[in-house]
Computed example of a mutant assay.
Amino acid sequence: MKTKFFYGLLSVLLIAIAIGVSGFLIKTKPVPKKDETKHNEMYVKTDQVKYVDVKADMTYRGRVTAYDNVSLAAEVSGRIMKGDVRFKAGERFRKGDVIVRIYSEDIQASLKSGKSSFLQTLSTILPDLKVDYPQEFEKWNNFFKAVDPARGLPDLPEANSDKEKVFLASTGVLSGYYSLQQQEIQLKRYTIRAPFNGSFKTVSKEIGAVASPGSELATIICSDKLEVVVPVFPSDLKWMKKGDEVKISNIAGIEESAIISRISDFIVDQSVNVYLSYDASGKNNIIEGAYVDAVFSGTKVPGFEIPREAIVDKSFVYELVGNKLQKTPIEIIRQLEDMTIISGVEESKLIVTESLASVNPNMEYLPR
């Protein structure tokens, strides 16, 4: 019993001694001194200002459109007949091809009948002309021979005197001629010829359908001459002028040359449209509806090129002075896609060329 009590008392004593020694060691452990030489530091990307002549091309994206986009409408009524090419969307044609023909055999027959009647009128006045106007007989006789019901009317001879003019009017020659001329003009409206090389963009009627005056038949586009509409920043217009050559390239990287044909004088969606003229004769690299990259050749300007993200509040940059940053005003000479050409900062100065979320006045900044 006494032995157990002794060992228990010894254990309690040892534990108390261990706790006391531990507390003493903790209290006597030296506290490390604070390093007063350590500061808050941050490395920033910088570049030394050096002005050079920078030639910066401007690249924009534009869309190709047809220079001529014509809507065809019927001027007369009748059944649509087959022309020289198929009347289908996408079908190509050449300038002068008959692309739309409307049934006109009845009109042609009526015109031939009118010309026959006109010949009859001429035949009745020729004897009188020979007697009363012998000096004019030869020209009217030749005109009579030139009139053919199957061909177009020849030019009407000119009357050389008022008496001759009165005679022609009173015998119905003048009214008969101009009536036939009007019928010939009307007949031409039954046939539509292609005004340029191109293709059908849309077709609204089918062969065999009946057209009425004013009804839309199709839309045609010119394939030889295209136009590229390029929206550009208004600030870049001073580097562009009508007649400048512009390089355009399609999605495959094939490059062609275009010319600035005109520049809008108004802003749409914060940009100005520049129109490029492109001669596509015999080429298929650039087609209507496609998007192309347009590279406008830039002139050399003195300046310093920095990333656009380094611009602060639209017209400032951060300059590294000592170990601190200060806002320095700049002049923006040219705005490029990812870069900006600036001036206004003294040469050899260090400016920050990256975007900073914020600037701490208590922070020391170091170049990297």
Rank of each mutant, 00 (worst) to 15 (best):
Y103W: 02
P149Q: 06
D162I: 03
K115V: 00
D68F: 14
G96R: 13
G78I: 00
D84H: 08
A66T: 12
E91Y: 07
A150G: 08
F93P: 14
S170A: 07
G114F: 02
D47P: 12
D84P: 11
R101S: 11
V173T: 09
T171F: 10
A169Y: 13
D155V: 03
E164A: 00
K95V: 07
S110D: 12
K50A: 14
S77D: 10
A146H: 05
Y60T: 09
Q135L: 04
S113I: 07
R94S: 15
V49L: 07
D106V: 00
S110W: 04
K163R: 10
L129A: 00
M58R: 02
V54E: 13
K165G: 09
I80C: 08
I125V: 15
P134S: 01
G83T: 05
V52P: 15
F143P: 14
L129S: 05
E158V: 10
D132S: 03
S110R: 11
P149N: 07
Y103A: 08
W140D: 11
S116G: 05
Y103N: 14
N141Q: 08
A73T: 08
R94D: 15
W140Q: 11
G78P: 07
N160W: 01
S113Q: 12
A146S: 09
A150P: 11
M58F: 03
K115L: 07
A56V: 01
N69Y: 12
E75L: 03
S123I: 00
K130G: 07
M58T: 01
P134T: 00
N160G: 06
A73F: 04
M81D: 03
A56F: 03
D106Y: 02
G152N: 10
V147R: 08
E91Q: 14
L119A: 02
N142R: 05
G83K: 13
Y133H: 05
V173D: 13
R92T: 09
S104Q: 04
A73I: 03
D84L: 06
V64W: 07
N141K: 06
L72Q: 03
I107W: 02
K55H: 11
V147Q: 09
I125P: 13
V76Y: 13
N160R: 08
A89H: 04
K145Y: 05
Y103I: 01
G62V: 01
Y103V: 00
P127H: 08
A169C: 15
S104P: 00
T171E: 15
L111W: 08
L122P: 10
